[in-house]
Amino acid sequence: MTERENPFVWFDFGGVLSPPLAELFSTYETKTGITPAALQAAMQAVGDDLGAHPLAPIELAQITEREWGSRLREHLAAADPDLDLSRARLETFGEQWFDGIVVNSAMASALRGLKAYGHRVGVLSNNVVEWEPYWRAIIEPAGPLDALVDSCLVGARKPDEQIFAIAEKVAGVDASQCILIDDLAQNVDAARRRGWQAIHFRSNGQAASELSRLTGIPAVL
């Protein structure tokens, strides 16, 4: 089988190559004292102010991290005036959010295994311009990527169809030659509507097993 015949495998970052999102929110609470519920409500409020999905403005680089963090601070303070925000570096959110976070070693191993068997791999992520140095450092153990499609760089975000079309062009393959591994059902559903194969990541073992079935290579964890 040639490289062009092998499917191109796209990994999500948050929740697949990183620890689960619930764990990230819990870790942030330990760092700052802000509960996941309070932080998520503030994110929703920022999105509502801008008439968008909670994270769309920053993941599409429509506002800066500093402006977004400042808006978060205002909403958190308004929702709970007694909340101590002194430990939260909201205006430089990414640096604190990712501090101490390590790669999901099982998925990093799966990515390296795919490369060893001649598959091309990439990251297809909704992410933030200012956060790239931090998440890039986290996934470094996974090894080199063949492609990166990042919402903040291409002006489209999952689950919008446009970002999948962009990824196909970047990889130089048809939709049917793409596999997405993502922890969010709406992104998986959108990829499948586009004609991709997709794995809804729920655990390392489950995702590795499905990946092995789709690619024909042994599950590597």
Rank of each mutant, 00 (worst) to 15 (best):
residue 23 E to Y: 10
residue 200 H to C: 01
residue 42 A to D: 00
residue 16 V to L: 04
residue 192 R to S: 13
residue 178 C to F: 03
residue 82 D to E: 15
residue 209 S to L: 05
residue 86 S to L: 07
residue 64 T to V: 11
residue 211 L to H: 05
residue 127 N to Y: 09
residue 49 D to C: 10
residue 167 A to W: 03
residue 49 D to E: 15
residue 214 L to C: 01
residue 210 E to P: 03
residue 75 H to T: 05
residue 158 K to P: 09
residue 138 I to Y: 04
residue 220 V to Y: 08
residue 65 E to H: 11
residue 199 I to L: 03
residue 109 S to A: 14
residue 52 A to C: 12
residue 160 D to L: 10
residue 134 Y to W: 13
residue 180 L to R: 04
residue 170 V to E: 08
residue 9 V to L: 07
residue 59 E to F: 09
residue 184 L to F: 11
residue 207 A to L: 10
residue 37 A to K: 15
residue 51 G to I: 14
residue 105 S to L: 13
residue 56 A to C: 02
residue 55 L to M: 15
residue 195 G to D: 13
residue 143 G to W: 08
residue 114 L to P: 05
residue 209 S to A: 12
residue 66 R to W: 05
residue 25 F to S: 04
residue 160 D to A: 12
residue 18 S to C: 02
residue 152 C to I: 00
residue 187 N to M: 14
residue 2 T to N: 02
residue 181 I to Y: 00
residue 181 I to L: 15
residue 54 P to R: 01
residue 50 L to C: 13
residue 26 S to I: 11
residue 24 L to T: 08
residue 148 L to C: 11
residue 165 A to E: 15
residue 206 Q to D: 11
residue 182 D to M: 05
residue 145 L to C: 15
residue 184 L to R: 07
residue 168 E to H: 12
residue 19 P to T: 09
residue 179 I to W: 01
residue 44 Q to W: 08
residue 129 V to C: 03
residue 105 S to I: 09
residue 93 F to M: 11
residue 182 D to C: 03
residue 217 I to F: 06
residue 203 S to Q: 07
residue 70 S to K: 10
residue 214 L to F: 09
residue 164 F to H: 04
residue 33 G to V: 09
residue 197 Q to P: 01
residue 189 D to P: 08
residue 19 P to K: 05
residue 146 D to Q: 09
residue 1 M to F: 02
residue 113 G to I: 07
residue 123 V to H: 00
residue 165 A to P: 02
residue 64 T to Q: 13
residue 115 K to S: 12
residue 209 S to M: 04
residue 201 F to G: 03
residue 73 R to V: 08
residue 143 G to I: 01
residue 103 V to H: 04
residue 146 D to A: 09
residue 45 A to Y: 05
residue 19 P to Y: 09
residue 47 G to E: 07
residue 185 A to I: 13
residue 199 I to S: 01
residue 69 G to Q: 00
residue 56 A to T: 15
residue 156 A to I: 02
residue 13 F to H: 01
residue 220 V to N: 13
residue 160 D to M: 11
residue 119 H to Y: 14
residue 207 A to M: 00
residue 167 A to Q: 07
residue 76 L to C: 02
residue 20 P to I: 03
residue 121 V to Y: 02
residue 15 G to D: 12
residue 91 E to T: 00
residue 209 S to Q: 03
residue 53 H to W: 15
